[in-house]
Design a protein around this nucleic acid. Sequence first.
RNA 1: GGCGCCUUGGCGGAGUAGCUACGCAGCGGUCUGCAAAACCGCGUACACGGGUGCAAAUCCCGUAGGUGCCUCCA
Length: 466
Amino acid sequence: MKLYNTLTRKIEEIKPLKPPTVTVYTCGPTVYDYPHIGNWFTFIRYDLLIRGLKASGYDPKWVMNITDVGHLTSDADEGEDKLEKGAKREGKTAWEIAQFYTDYFLKGLERLNISKPAYLPKATDHIQEQIELIGKLERKGYTYVIDDGVYYDTSKFPKYADFAKLDLDDQQAGARVEQNPQKRNPTDFALWKFSPKDKKRDMEWDSPWGKGFPGWHLECSAMSMKYLGETLDIHSGGIDHIPVHHTNEIAQSEAATGKRFANCWMHTNHITVDDQKISKSLGNSVTLEDIEAKGYSLEAFRLHVLESHYRSQSKFSWDSLAAAQNRLKDFYAIAVLRYQASSRAASINAEMLSKVRAEIEAALSGDLNTPQILASLGAIVAVAKDGLQAQDRTVFEDFLKWLDEILGLNLLKQPDISDQQKQLIKEREVARAKNDWAKSDELRDQLAKQGIGLRDTGSSAIWHRL
RNA sequence: GGCGCCUUGGCGGAGUAGCUACGCAGCGGUCUGCAAAACCGCGUACACGGGUGCAAAUCCCGUAGGUGCCUCCA
């Protein structure tokens, strides 16, 4: 399977250290508020990677962290901890906030049919590992202590600017953030932040350097190494993380181990709404609840995500979501043909299914080209009008199962119609045979009210959900 | 100010040199008892200006516009 690697800026074949296992670490959510659709786009795209690896014969071992402490309102170690800020907003403790939004997030993964990671470690459960990592860096001379925390000296890591191709001198010229003047370099970042002297934090721990909490970047290094070893096969995350978070992860991890931190970096692009980025301040964040409230299914949302490539900055709009929902209805209409296999002449057959399958496999292993996958599926949509022959039913169901494993659109979960509904269809066939059009149309209307549409073919009617 | 990325038909969105992407919506027509179903056809899409090539949406240069990061972000 080929994937675009940010490290080399090229599309490359995946080369796991211990195939068929592929270790994958993903930067998960900071659980301080409801995720918006932009966040969910990203998690669906991560899921696609996992599903793609499985379909390519690999055995992905996936770890996604839950950031429940230490993520400040600025990556430059300024401002408040997001969890503490969320706590203040809602009049709860940071622990309560973390629990609530973690639960909400995990439920969202299920609702969106996102694969379950093997581990979902929380930063607060790994304070000891993080302290040990700081100790390791301290012994190697990468750290220094100033009044508000323990910092990583980025000038000690010569390759610091390479990953994001940063131009450190020019970048600083326009920096707008006020920094602690005791920092040796503007890019230095906190490994451990001391608790403020004037107030009590909800979340704080003792450490060899003083009471406080871990810096945000540290958790990913500590937890990925604990669960997946010192070198990852794939590290995925949002494109925004390249210049700071991932750059810092590489610096601290490779300084600590002396080994390559991740062999492949997969970055998902952001989406826009009304051609603008999503942000709470612009008031354009949409939630899963908003989508459902407008009558769209989460499967339609998922399909909408798959309609663009994970590396492109794609657009979300309600029109596009409506288009995806319409397209999904066609897919479901085809999926339920498995309940309607008959002796009629049909175009869906083993040969064309295997041809389409080969096309989809090629698109999937070519940097997860989901728009191409959907285009290939169009070949089946185009011939589905003829229905399915009984002899092809098994191979067709296998195909749907395989497709569900890749796309997660719940094709096999589309239920059969009820016996009563089947009876109505039979009665209508009888009426039609007698040229009793009034009766026939009445039965068709009755089924339509139950959400069942009919398409008359030469021999009999094929049903689908409206 | 610095560093990137992008600009494809009404909308969404693949495609990195030569062959209708695809989807949604629209228009015209055909068939069927009728049909919102099906089928056929239509719009001559690649920001603009140069350049390289037998050939460019696809490579190079420039212009315009947009956008991302450096501030919270997935």
